[in-house]
Simulated scan of single mutants.
Amino acid sequence: MKILVINPGAGSTKLALFEDEQILVEKKITHSPNELARFDRVVDQLTMRQDIVEKEMEKMGVAVADLSAVVARGGPFAPLESGTYIVDETLVNDVLKGHVQADHASNLGVLIAYELTKSTIIPAYFVDPVSVDEFADLSRISGLPELPRKSLSHALNIKMVVRKAAEYLRKDFRKLTFIVAHLGSGISIAIHKKGRLIDVNNANDGGPLAPQRTGTLPVTGLIELC
């Protein structure tokens, strides 16, 4: 069973071709700030990124018809439980119309997967999107009732690291508690308790300073700046 995995990020597009659980080919294509600056919205990058994916597939010597499935990173869609979901036309239209919680490169994954498979019988899926929401009730509380905290994070990596760590410990991840730090162009610091991501900073709103995020800012100074 061959599966193509697509992981678009803020500064790169990552691809991997699997045969069952074995990686056959893995690629990372880096995008410079100048390359991306010509696009007004992230979704406007679709054609450019899809062309890259198709060219890399040619280099791999694989066609869509050779695949059992295409799996994409999921973006900041509506709040969802952790899991694997099918990419359908409704989701694609929501992303294209901007009916998402943020304009982020991870939204492109489902669009590319859909375009690759829409004229075939090959299914397209997304897994553990940015909008995984398993918050405990207390985690939603901020210092202002009108501004509840949102669960937006690097959930895909967080969930995988938890599973890998539990596997290393030879224990069931659903019985363990972890603090997980995802360090990328944005940073997510999460509490993962008994199989659920119960609290995490939204890297777009606050948390640590990161290469493409300001981190938490002084509120008074930000108001004065605006």
Rank of each mutant, 00 (worst) to 15 (best):
H192V: 05
I198Q: 02
K193N: 04
G184A: 09
S188M: 08
A210T: 04
G206P: 11
I187D: 01
K193R: 14
D199S: 06
Q212E: 10
I198Y: 07
S188D: 08
P208H: 03
G184Q: 04
G207V: 02
P208I: 01
N204Y: 15
P208E: 06
S185R: 10
A210F: 01
G206E: 10
D199T: 00
L197Q: 12
S185Q: 09
L183C: 07
P211I: 13
D199L: 03
G207H: 10
H192F: 15
I187M: 12
G186Q: 04
I191V: 11
G186V: 05
R196H: 09
P211L: 07
K194P: 01
K193H: 13
P211W: 12
L197I: 10
R196T: 09
N201Q: 10
K194T: 00
P208L: 02
A190D: 03
N201K: 12
P211Q: 03
I189W: 01
N204V: 08
N204F: 15
A210H: 01
V200R: 06
A190Y: 05
D205Q: 13
A203T: 10
Q212C: 15
N201V: 08
V200P: 04
R196K: 15
G195E: 02
G207D: 00
S185C: 05
L183N: 11
A210Q: 04
H192D: 13
R196Q: 14
S188P: 09
A190V: 01
I189G: 03
V200N: 07
Q212I: 13
I189H: 03
N202F: 06
L183D: 00
A203S: 14
P208W: 03
K194L: 07
A203H: 12
P208T: 07
N204A: 15
I198D: 02
I189A: 13
G184H: 06
G195P: 08
V200G: 05
G195A: 04
G186I: 02
L183R: 08
P208M: 10
I191G: 15
N204W: 14
I198K: 08
I187T: 13
H192Y: 15
S188G: 12
A203K: 02
L209C: 10
R196E: 08
N202L: 07
R213Q: 03
S188E: 01
K194A: 11
I187Y: 02
A210N: 03
G195D: 07
N202K: 09
N204P: 03
A203Y: 09
G184R: 02
A203P: 15
S188L: 08
P211K: 14
